[in-house]
């Protein structure tokens, strides 16, 4: 009985994780510009891979595997947002413009108002 329950849980978690990874990849391909693509990669990607790692932890459920899987998930949660916002900052600094459909850019406004020529002059 517990085996049936475990198999069902692990199987559905695998399917769900794979689904989220697929949506993240579709988002990276389909969204119009860098910043919105980053949304898809950092959120859905983390949840997808995290669910798959959690499925592995539930399937093996011995201590060393569970701790390593939890460590991997925590690591993913820490590094994904850092790399996302480092890339966004680098892209913005090099003058990668917001998508033409964007409605607001308070960062550019702030920079030009303060006379910070570094970001303003490159665009």
């Amino acid at each position: 009985m517990t085996e049936l329950l475990q198999n069902l849980l692990v199987g559905s978690m695998m399917l769900l994780g794979a689904f989220f990874a697929l949506t993240a990849a579709i988002g990276v391909l389909r969204l119009p510009e860098l910043y919105t693509r980053m949304h898809a990669a950092s959120k859905a990607g983390v949840v997808g891979s995290g669910l798959l790692l959690l499925a592995l932890a539930l399937f093996q459920h011995d201590l060393s595997t569970v701790t390593r899987a939890v460590a991997a998930i925590v690591f993913l949660l820490l590094t994904a947002p850092i790399s996302a916002h480092l890339l966004a900052k680098a892209a913005y600094g090099t003058g990668y413009r917001l998508w033409s459909g964007s409605v607001l850019d308070e960062m550019g406004k702030e920079r030009t108002r303060k006379g910070d020529g570094q970001a303003g002059s490159s665009r």
Binding site: F20, T23, V47, L98, S102, E110
Partner: peptide, 26 residues
């Protein structure tokens, strides 16, 4: 919030016409 955000990204990406109003706010 993490689960909700993944779900929202999935719904946005899979919708045929993506309604986007992106922007940067302080």
């Amino acid at each position: 919030e993490l689960a909700l955000s993944a779900w929202r990204v999935a719904r946005l990406v899979l919708s045929p016409r993506m309604e986007l109003k992106p922007g940067i706010f302080a």
